[in-house]
Nucleic acid binder design. Structure first.
Length: 477
RNA sequence: CGGGGUGUGGCUCAGUUUGGUUAGAGCGCCGUCUUAGGGAGGCGGAGGCCGCUAGUUCGAAUCUAGUCACUCCGACCA
């Protein structure tokens, strides 16, 4: 019975995962398409998720000394061009502003695809002494990248994100900050979004344009594809040299700053959908859910039922994000609707319950129905929300672990990717040629070189030469 | 950007092959009555110049060309 499909409008994920994803995004009313190609209208239920992500992340950032700022959305072409690798990486996908009103601009400007150059320009003017360091700034904004193909949340031409940009006196401090923020991201995904991640470093091929080193957290989606869910870059002094950001140190010599940047985006909402969702719809972990508990009155026209529902809401609203579905749909409709929208917990209350002093709680994650006394609602709801949060993380971890494979030679490697989908752990020699071959053969990329290394073999899975590192490989969004 | 698919009330689609008056269905929506513990039923309504533009024709949702959007598979990216 648990497998019975109740929401017919949602395509089953095993029939067509991409269609399933699109259905959820639309039916759970997270976004709508707009007249602007590749740009979405984020609807209230989708934006509320982003607001919760934003509030929690912002709090965690500030605990590490981050301060928020705001930079322009336009970047003059000359500024974008200052760092060679950076401009090469982004030039193909920027949108250009060429006119101001009716007059052509003397110099065209792009709409920021990312703001390294603006922060560098700012730091150049504001960093003079070691006393001015570190600068630990972040901004919440949207950026534009002219993607060829777009998908809601996963790849849109404009998306919301935060971008942290820091400048430090020493290379060590920059490295520390790079790793610190990666850890903030990883903890946030696990604690708040119930998404387990693999932490590690990107290969040279996969690193950010202009970075010395790029670190990443990689999550595994339900279909076995990987999603890069956050990145943290150490720029060394590359940008500082390109933009001439120098300070006078204690010893009265001029030194270049060392910089980092790190970002997370609305793509996380896509991750929430694809990690936790099922054929009934969205499934939100309690901590991020805009509505944690939905109260569904049964026979709500009967005397006292709605009053009791409102009374429960008022008792709970101090500790839980709660709403009463008092629309005049049938209860069955409301159950399905609550599931489609991913509310972690729902409470059913009708005349029989009221008479017996009870109500029914139903978990979204397991569909388990639990009868409780009306006097214990506050404690049970809070307990259950905690349990659901934990269980969802464990379920996601179990799924990821069950879809993480090991390959010791190329035959195993190819066979695994042909037959399974997920992460494959394998040894790598460190050469770009092997990454290129693997990508050409299998459309598989290196996801990361995990911090937690295991020695699976002595030789590279691809070329057979001595291995340097164990790498997570996968097909990615 | 290359390849495939799709555009007809809010949604899902029929009608296009073979051009022919007022363009259909189901669901949803509005009103109302009856219902109510897993997507209820009756009655009465509203809503579409068929993605857009040009062309062919006495006549175009239907044929032709172009264009735009969405979607899927690649290449690129968070």
């Amino acid at each position: 019975m648990a497998d019975k499909k109740m929401v017919e409008e949602i395509t089953s994920m095993d029939v067509d995962f991409a269609q399933w994803y699109t259905d959820i995004v639309r039916k759970a009313e997270l976004i709508d398409y707009t007249s602007v190609k590749g740009c979405m209208a984020i609807k209230p239920d989708g934006y509320a998720i982003w607001e919760n992500i934003q509030a929690e992340l912002d709090k965690r950032f500030k605990e590490t000394g981050v301060r928020n700022v705001y930079m322009p959305m336009f970047i003059p072409e000359s500024l974008l061009e200052k760092e060679k690798d950076h401009v090469e990486g982004f030039a193909p996908e920027v949108a250009w502003v060429t006119h101001g009103g009716l007059e052509p601009l003397q110099e065209r400007m792009c709409v920021r695809p990312t703001s390294e150059t603006l922060f560098c320009d700012h730091y150049k003017n504001n960093v003079h002494s070691y006393r001015d360091l570190p600068k630990v700034y972040n901004q919440w904004c949207s950026v534009v990248r002219w993607e060829k193909e777009t998908r809601p949340f996963l790849r849109s031409r404009e998306f919301l994100w935060q971008e942290g940009h820091t400048a430090h006196a020493t290379a060590e401090e920059a490295q520390e900050r790079t790793e610190q923020m990666l850890n903030v991201y990883a903890d946030f995904l696990e604690d708040f979004l119930a998404i387990p991640v693999v932490k590690g470093r990107k290969t040279e091929k996969e690193k950010f344009a202009g970075a010395e080193a790029t670190y990443t957290i990689e999550a595994l989606m339900h279909d076995g594809k990987a999603l890069q869910s956050g990145t943290s870059h150490n720029f060394g002094d590359g940008f500082a040299k390109a933009f001439d950001i120098q300070y006078t140190d204690k010893d009265n010599t001029l030194k270049y700053v060392h910089q980092t940047s790190w970002g997370m985006t609305t793509r996380l909402i896509g991750a929430l959908i694809m990690v936790h969702g099922d054929n009934e719809g969205l499934k939100l972990p309690p901590r991020v859910a805009p509505v944690q508990l939905c109260i569904i009155p049964i026979q709500q026209k009967k005397e006292g039922v709605l009053d009791k529902a409102y009374e429960l809401r008022d008792r709970l609203k101090a500790s839980v994000r709660v709403k009463v579905d008092d629309t005049d749909k049938t209860p069955g409709w409301k159950f399905s609707e609550a599931e489609m929208r991913g509310y972690p917990l729902r409470l059913e209350i009708g005349p029989k319950d009221i008479e017996a002093g009870k109500c029914v709680l139903v978990r979204r994650d397991t569909r388990e129905k639990i009868e409780i006394g009306l006097d214990e609602v506050e404690t049970k709801v809070c307990e259950l929300l905690d349990t659901i949060q934990k269980d969802m993380l464990e379920a996601a971890r179990a799924h990821r672990d069950a879809h993480t494979y090991v390959a010791r030679n190329y035959d195993e490697f190819v066979k695994t990717f042909n037959e399974k989908s997920g992460f494959v752990k394998a040894m790598w020699c460190g050469n770009r040629e092997c990454e290129d071959k693997i990508k050409a053969d299998l459309a598989v990329t290196s996801r990361c070189i995990p911090f937690e290394q295991e020695k699976l073999a002595d030789t590279c899975v691809c070329c057979g030469k001595p291995a340097q590192k164990m790498v997570y490989w996968g097909r990615a969004y």
